[in-house]
């Protein structure tokens, strides 16, 4: 039971630290990485929700007791989430590259794309 609240606290900490990084970021690359930290909080939170005490991975090739396995739905969610996150971060970094080319700076406070 305590592990559950510990995981919830870690998730909240990761979320808030990442959000703080995004708010105070002075560099778009740093900002993308802060977003990765925010997203890591969802991994911790959901895997904690899907875990059961004493549970094992839901792979039944050498496991006969199906009631001991953890929630496979959450695991499937996490799996696609991680891959999609990697490509979305790549997209954001590509945007950062273009912003650097167009404006010459990576500081989000000094990027002025509406300048015309």
């Amino acid at each position: 039971m305590t592990y559950f609240y510990a995981a919830m606290a870690v998730a909240a900490w990761l979320f808030l630290v990442g959000a703080y990084g995004i708010v105070t970021s002075r560099n778009l690359i740093h900002l993308c990485l802060c977003l990765v930290v925010v997203q890591a909080s969802t991994y911790v939170l959901l895997t904690a929700v899907g875990y059961r005490p004493g549970g094992v991975a839901p792979i039944f090739i050498d496991l006969k007791e199906t009631d001991k396995a953890v929630d496979p739905v959450i695991q499937a969610l996490m799996l696609t989430d991680i891959v999609v996150e990697a490509t979305v971060v790549a997209l954001l970094l590509a945007i950062a590259v273009q912003i650097k080319k167009k404006t010459g700076t990576l500081d989000p406070d000094r990027v002025d794309l509406m300048h015309g």
């Binding site: 839901p58 039944f60 739905v73």
Partner: peptide, 9 residues
């Protein structure tokens, strides 16, 4: 299938 995660996915 024996991998429930892949079955869900």
């Amino acid at each position: 299938v024996t991998d429930a995660v892949t079955a869900v996915n």
